[in-house]
């Protein structure tokens, strides 16, 4: 019995280690790639080389990476703030002020998730032009202010929030916004953190829509930049790898620093 369970445990570890290595290896390769030349990368070299400084020099000499990086940060952070505020408020309304009519609206909102974005692109673009928001970060941010997924996510999390607390606050004479703002929201820190990661992740990695809205070089975001860099007839892969790493780094940093909140936040939303 003892031997069997030991063996079983070993199998489990082997499985987990394999999954871990498979998941992480491409990241390792990306980091290695930043130090190699294009030819070595295509040949599949998996050890560190000495091209890091030349690659970086070329990247920063040829492109205004700082500016592009800042654009991405700006768009992602502003979108994040807007999405969190608007989506959590909406979910609050749907959950704590439930009514038949609003429930219908909620269902309709969820259904829109099924429509592929490609179908909406052209009418959406017409709107952007009509509002004179073409080639502005405002246009990009405004169109993604309400995230259907986040509304759903927040609402799921609110479900486990004890309604008695709200009731008690009302008895104490607190206004509705104060209840939302200083009682409910602070109690759901983990949910907000998880939502923030999700929101940042989607807008940081967003590609198709920024591509259409943003037109000039000084508005460009990281993803647009990396993609144009990687699609040259003969890409400088060493340089591309550095750009890729720079574009991935913020996500990795944010996830590492907030991952405990992230898991807790999702845990809160999946509680029934």
């Amino acid at each position: 019995m003892k031997v069997k369970s030991y063996f079983f445990r070993c199998v489990q570890y082997v499985f987990l280690v394999t999954a871990f290595v498979l998941a992480v290896f491409p990241f390792y390769w990306m980091v290695v790639g930043t130090t190699n030349s294009a030819v070595d990368i295509i040949k599949g070299k998996i050890t560190f080389g000495d091209q890091l400084i030349p690659n970086l020099k070329k990247l920063f000499a040829d492109y205004d990476v700082g500016r592009i990086f800042w654009n991405s940060c700006k768009v992602s952070i502003l979108t994040l703030i807007g999405q969190l505020l608007i989506s959590s408020m909406a979910a609050y309304g749907f959950e704590f002020f439930a009514s038949k009519a609003r429930e219908r609206v909620y269902r309709a909102v969820l259904l829109t998730m099924m429509v592929p974005f490609a179908a909406l692109m052209i009418p959406l673009f017409r709107l952007i032009v009509r509002f004179h928001l073409l080639d502005t970060h405002t246009g990009l941010i405004l169109t993604s202010l309400a995230s259907v997924f986040l509304i759903f996510f927040f609402r799921q999390s609110y479900k486990s929030f004890p309604k008695e607390i709200i009731q008690a606050a009302r008895v104490d004479g607190a206004g509705e916004f104060r209840i939302f703002w200083s009682i409910v929201a602070p109690a759901m820190k983990a949910t907000y953190a998880a939502a923030a990661i999700y929101s940042f992740m989607t807008s940081w990695n967003n590609y198709m829509w920024p591509l259409i809205v943003l037109q000039s070089n000084n508005q460009k975001t990281m993803q647009l930049f990396v993609s144009s860099l990687a699609s040259a007839y003969f890409p400088e892969y060493g340089v591309v790898m550095n750009a890729i790493l720079i574009s991935t780094l913020p996500m990795i940093v944010i996830f590492f620093s907030l991952q405990n909140y992230f898991v807790r936040g999702i845990t809160g939303s999946v509680k029934q």
């Binding site: 608007i86 408020m89 749907f94 439930a98 609003r102 609206v105 309400a146």
Partner: peptide, 8 residues
């Protein structure tokens, strides 16, 4: 109720 969901 309507106010909270209005922006979204």
């Amino acid at each position: 109720g309507w106010f909270f969901i209005s922006f979204a």
